[in-house]
Amino acid sequence: MKHIISVLVENKFGVLSRVSGLFSGRGFNIETISVGPTLDPTVSQMTIVTSGDERILEQIIKQLNKLIDVIKVADLAEKEFVEREMCLIKVNAPSEQRAEALRIADIFRARVVDSSQKSYTFQVTGDEKKLEAFIELLRPIGIKEIVRTGKVAITRE
């Protein structure tokens, strides 16, 4: 089972390595991890996507809570939340495929952020399903490179 865990940490030197070291040291899996500042500059926010059964997830959350620099841990599966991920995709776009590429991008509301004679780079944002669907449709055209941010998530009011 996949889980999205939101972790508030002290914005201090070495905290990311404590968190990632915890996962690797105990054999827990990290699928994606993203880190950024919050409204309070002394606090950072991490969003971690992980997988494992209930027992493992319970351990992950307890172990995270135990880290001295961790302020708060929330398993978003227990809440209503919105998740988003951004992806940059560079596709082959020789003249005969340019129109097709743009048409697919349009459906997914992807933006062209760079173009050359033979390629487009799209920026697309959405949940995992949307990103996967977009990538699948572009595949026949020929994807040169993909860069993804990893998920971020926020609870609903």
Binding site: F13, R18, G21, I68
Partner: peptide
């Protein structure tokens, strides 16, 4: 030593 002992200390601090 901070990196080396991270997994075997309760906490460690580099004073800057």
């Amino acid at each position: 030593i901070i990196g080396i002992t991270r997994p075997c200390t309760k906490y460690n601090i580099l004073v800057k």
